[in-house]
C-alpha cells in the first residue's frame, strides 16, 4: 500500500474495501462459496442451505454493515476533532462521549426498564449526548468562553467522573457487568439486524454534515480573527462541528461500545498516506476507519467463531505497534 503513488491510494483503499466485503461474508465455518453469494445477489434464495442463508442475512451481513458504518463514523469524527482542536492527541473518547454512553447503559440496567436493543441504543446515545452537552456547559461556565483546548481538558475530567460512577455500579452489580461486558470491550456482537437502517441513516447524515463543515473548518484553521473576517463565526463552527462529532460518535458507541483506536489513530494514518488537505484527510479517515474495523472483525471472527474476542481489543493490540512502526519510519525518512 505504501508503495503506491498518491493518486492511486484512494482507488486502492476503495478496492480493498470492496475485496474485504465478500471475504468477510464467506469466512468462518459455513459451506458458502462465492457462487452462492452471486446466486443470492440475483435473487436465487433456494441455492443455499437454510442455515447458511440465516447466518449470512442475520449474522454476517448486519455485522459487516455495522463494522463499515461504525468504522467510517469513528474515523470521520476523529478527523473532525483533530482538525477542530489542532491537537493530534484529540479523540472523541476525550470528550467524555464513551464514558457518557457507558453511564447511560448502566443507568438503563439498574432502572426498571427492559434491556432490549432499542432501549440500550437510546440509553447509550442519550448518555453520550448528555455527557458532551455537559462538557460544553461546564467549559462555558468555568472559562467564560468555548476554546477547543478547554473542551478536551474538561472532557477528560468529566470522563474520569463518569468512568468512576460506571465502575461503581458495575462493581456493585455483577448482573450489569455481565450484560455489557462485551460492549465495554468494543465489540460488534450486540449488533441487531433491525438497528442497521437507523445506524445507516444517522451515520450518513453525519458524514454529509462533516463534508459541509470542511470549508468553515478550513477558515477556522486560518485563525479566529481571519475566520471572522472571512464571514465565519468561530463559535458557531465549533458548535456545529461539535454536534457532528457527537452524532457520529454517539451512534457508533451505542452500537459497538468504545473503539478508541479508530478515532485516535485513523486520522493520522489518513494524513500520512493521503496528505493534509482536509477533504482528502476526511474521506481517507472514513474509508480507512471502515476498512480497519471490518478487517479487525474479520480477524477475530476467523480465530474465534464463538464470537468472544472483541475487535476493539484486536485493533488496539495489532494497530498500536503497527502505528508506532509507521511513525518511526516517517521520522527516519525525515
Amino acid at each position: 500500500m505504501t508503495t503506491l503513488t498518491s493518486e492511486w491510494r484512494f482507488p486502492g483503499l476503495l478496492l480493498a474495501i470492496l475485496l474485504v466485503i465478500p471475504i468477510t461474508l464467506l469466512s468462518g465455518d459455513t459451506t458458502l462459496e462465492l457462487i452462492d453469494l452471486w446466486q443470492l445477489l440475483i435473487g436465487n434464495i433456494n441455492s443455499t442451505s437454510p442455515i447458511d442463508y440465516l447466518v449470512l442475512t442475520e449474522l454476517r451481513l448486519p455485522r459487516l454493515l455495522a463494522a463499515l458504518l461504525v468504522g467510517a463514523a469513528l474515523g470521520t469524527a476523529g478527523c473532525l476533532l483533530q482538525r477542530l482542536t489542532a491537537n493530534p492527541l484529540a479523540s472523541p473518547g476525550l470528550l467524555s462521549l464513551n464514558q457518557g454512553a457507558s453511564l447511560g447503559l448502566v443507568c438503563l440496567l439498574i432502572s426498571p426498564l427492559p434491556f432490549t436493543p432499542l432501549y440500550s441504543f437510546s440509553a447509550a446515545f442519550a448518555g453520550a449526548s448528555i455527557a458532551m452537552i455537559l462538557v460544553f456547559g461546564v467549559v462555558r461556565l468555568a472559562t467564560g468562553g468555548l476554546a477547543a483546548d478547554s473542551l478536551l481538558l474538561f472532557g477528560a475530567l468529566l470522563s474520569a467522573l463518569f468512568g468512576a460512577l460506571t465502575t461503581l455500579v458495575l462493581i456493585l452489580d455483577q448482573h450489569a457487568l455481565d450484560a455489557i461486558r462485551f460492549w465495554l470491550a468494543g465489540s460488534l456482537s450486540m449488533v441487531e439486524p433491525e438497528q442497521i437502517p437507523l445506524l445507516a441513516g444517522l451515520v450518513f447524515s453525519g458524514l454529509v454534515l462533516a463534508v459541509i463543515q470542511c470549508r468553515p473548518l478550513l477558515l477556522l484553521e486560518t485563525g479566529k480573527d481571519t475566520a471572522r473576517g472571512l464571514g465565519a463565526d468561530p463559535r458557531l463552527v465549533l458548535l456545529s462541528v461539535g454536534a457532528t462529532i457527537l452524532l457520529l460518535t454517539a451512534v457508533s458507541v451505542a452500537v459497538s461500545g468504545p473503539i478508541l483506536f479508530i478515532g485516535l489513530v485513523v486520522p493520522h494514518l489518513s494524513r500520512l498516506w493521503l496528505g493534509n488537505q482536509i477533504h482528502r484527510q476526511l474521506a481517507g479517515s472514513a474509508l480507512l476507519g471502515a476498512l480497519l474495523l471490518t478487517l479487525a472483525d474479520l480477524l477475530v471472527y476467523h480465530f474465534d467463531t464463538d464470537d468472544r474476542l472483541p475487535p476493539g481489543v484486536a485493533l488496539a493490540v495489532i494497530g498500536v505497534p503497527w502505528f508506532l512502526w509507521l511513525v518511526r519510519k516517517r521520522y527516519i525518512n525525515q
Binding site: 442475520e58 449474522l59 427492559p114 434491556f115 440500550s120 448482573h175 450484560a179 464463538d306
Partner: peptide, 26 residues
C-alpha cells in the same frame, strides 16, 4: 456454552426446557 445462534440446532429436542438467568437485564 454457545455464543452464536449459528449453533441453534444443538438446542433441539422434542421438549425444550428453557430457563432464563436474568430475564430483565438482558
Amino acid at each position: 456454552r454457545l455464543r452464536s445462534p449459528q449453533q441453534i440446532d444443538l438446542l433441539e429436542g422434542d421438549i425444550i426446557l428453557l430457563s432464563e438467568y436474568s430475564p430483565k437485564q438482558g
